[in-house]
Design a protein around this nucleic acid. Sequence first.
RNA 1: UGGGCUAUCGCCAAAUGGUAAGGCAACGGACUCUGACUCCGUCAUCUGUAGGUUCGAAUCCUACUAGCCCAGCCA
Length: 461
Amino acid sequence: YEDRLFFASDYFDHMYEAAIKLIKKGKAYVCDLTPEEIREYRGTLREPGKNSPYRDRSIEENLELFEKMKNGEFEDGSKVLRAKIDMTSGNINMRDPIIYRVARMTHHNTGDKWCIYPMYDFAHPIEDAIEGVTHSICTLEFEDHRPLYDWVVNEVGYEHPPKQIEFAKLYFENVITGKRYIKKLVEDGIVDGWDDPRLVSLSALRRRGFTPEAIRMFMELSGVAKSHSVSDYAMFEYCIREDLKMKANRMMAVLDPIKLIIDNYPEDQVEYLDVENNQENEELGMREVAFSKELYIEREDFMEEPPKKYFRLFPGNEVRLKNAYFVKCTDFIKDEAGNIVEIHCTYDPETKSGSGFTGRKVKGTIHWVSVAHAVDAEVRLYENIVEEDGINTEDGSLKLNPNSLVVLNNCKLEKEFENVDKGDRFQFLRHGFFCVDTKDYTKEHPVFNRIVSLKSSYRPS
RNA sequence: UGGGCUAUCGCCAAAUGGUAAGGCAACGGACUCUGACUCCGUCAUCUGUAGGUUCGAAUCCUACUAGCCCAGCCA
């Protein structure tokens, strides 16, 4: 490989030599037509083009003119070098494509050394060839360029000519990938920069909490084909859940809190419960979780008048507090407006987690956070940024999903969340996977992003 | 008849003449101190349509249909 390492200047030298070679073979000529004339001569999709009046210049004249182009004796845009192929080809790329033009540009590596630069269709196959690329893989829209790619490689002549292979791009349902659109979203302030977690740029994916492993898994699952495909975002979600399942600590976080008071629990008592960080992965170890008389539970885990098959808390029903005790709802309190503000219950000391209690079973287990030990946090929930069909066909505008970002400002997390670093990922029990926002997180004001929710088969009727 | 390409389950995708893999999603059920995970089961007599060849076709042939790409001195 080492003898194939080139510097930018080597590439340009190489391409220049290749152009000379084509001229000497009578396969390239200098053309004086203006850009407008060249377009006219090229013909249209349905009509063939016609030959440039400069097409039959002698090899000597072409050599001399090209040398002058290189030496800066012509204005930008005044002359080009064209491959002599076929102006009547059905493939427009083969109608004497321009392979070199005069353009005074400063190259980031070679500075102002050159004032002529090769076109993509000429440079690409040559770069591949001299680098020893065997298969040059690109997207479908370059299929029409392959005949020219092959023509260049063949006419310049390489011992091991590279092959171009095309495949379909990856498209996502309900996601914006077009840079034009993203740019507008950023400029209009609809998203928080190019790394807004609702976007799918790599920086956005990173900030959202996706792992490289999940992205790779998704690529392997998707496969590579030539058919135009639009992937289901659910497949990507599956990958990140799958990757984080065993890696992330499973902790308790109440996103929409309501107070639960255990009437028969001693006033100032605090129990520190030993809890596994991940029941499926012992290597993640244990932690302590504080339990006390006053807890926060999820507002949706209580209902005054539950529908059928509601396993959570309602008057008279008993549930398990995850990692702690069974509690039975005895009462609830409403404010003047009729909103439930507080729930009361009693607990059964015999039912403590790990005690081996088997006296009776409960159908529901809910998560909780001790009021006295809670960490306040902001949690951001994300959904697809655009609606089902994404873009309005009439005016090309985006159909934005108004719920693509939901900010929750009154979330209560267990104490363990005091010590996190930006980018850390967790499972919030019964909610989903979340990560510490890399941009807005501060110790005083923790911010978490929802990477993906957990699946749920609960369908309230 | 301008040229090129693609059509297999809701989505992705195998199978290139031997009788339609797999994954996601969905739906049943078991299990469950996450309505998660896991486990079990269901999910294309059929491969854009219509013909043809063949003992046998998603694969070969013919004709249609639909969709995508191409007219930068951009990449």
